[in-house]
Simulated scan of single mutants.
Amino acid sequence: MPNPNAIVSTRIDFDPPLDRPAEELLRAGLWVELEGGRRARLDPSDPRSSGFVQVLDGLSRLKAPVYLEIDPSNAAITRLLIPHVTRPMSMRPSDQGYEIMLERSHARHVLRRDNPDFATLEPLLRTALDTGQLLIIPEDDAHNIIDVRGYTPGPDDAPRPPWPKPDLQPFELPWWKRLLDWIWRWPIWPWWWFRCVSKATAQQTFDAMSATTCPPLTVPVPCIPFLYPDDGCWARAHEMCRLMINMGRKPRKVWIQGNLHVATKNHPNCFVNWGWHVAPTLCVRRGWFWTQQMVIDPSLFSTPVPQATWKGVQGDPNATLTPSDASIFHLWSNETDPTYVKTNQVLALYRLQLQSRAIQHGPPPYAHCP
Rank of each mutant, 00 (worst) to 15 (best):
E23W: 04
C369F: 10
V341K: 13
T336A: 02
H109P: 01
R104L: 04
I7L: 14
N318G: 06
H277A: 08
P166E: 09
I137S: 03
T339P: 03
S356Q: 11
T127V: 11
S45A: 15
P153I: 03
G97M: 01
T10P: 00
G132R: 08
P155V: 12
E23H: 05
I188P: 01
D325N: 11
P44I: 12
K177S: 13
N266S: 11
M294Y: 13
A142N: 06
V85S: 02
A28S: 15
P306Y: 11
P364V: 11
A64M: 02
A200F: 08
C283S: 14
H361L: 11
D207S: 11
R249V: 01
A326Q: 09
G287C: 07
H330S: 06
F171K: 10
P16N: 11
S105Y: 04
T291A: 05
L68N: 04
Q345M: 08
E69A: 07
S90D: 13
R249T: 00
R242H: 14
M247S: 08
T303R: 15
S9R: 06
W310M: 07
V254Y: 05
V55Q: 04
W234Q: 12
I296W: 04
L102N: 03
S49T: 12
E239L: 13
P159D: 06
E23C: 03
A202N: 07
P222H: 05
R112F: 01
S90Y: 06
P364Y: 05
P187C: 07
W234N: 12
S356D: 07
L26C: 13
M101Y: 01
N273K: 13
P174L: 13
Q314D: 03
R160M: 07
L321F: 05
K265R: 15
R38Q: 15
C223W: 10
D141M: 08
V221W: 06
G150L: 14
M91K: 04
M89P: 00
A75Y: 04
R286G: 00
R185N: 10
P138N: 08
H368L: 09
W288M: 08
V219A: 12
A158T: 12
Q353S: 09
S73F: 08
L282H: 02
N344L: 03
D325H: 12
P364I: 06
V53N: 06
A358G: 07
A142V: 02
Q204M: 10
P222N: 08
F118S: 10
H277M: 05
I296F: 01
P364Q: 07
R286M: 05
Q360R: 05
M247K: 10
K165D: 07
T343Q: 02
P17T: 04
I82V: 14
W255H: 14
N318P: 00
N259K: 11
L102R: 01
P215K: 10
F329Y: 15
I137E: 06
N266G: 01
G258Q: 12
D337Y: 08
K311Q: 14
D156L: 15
P166K: 10
C196D: 15
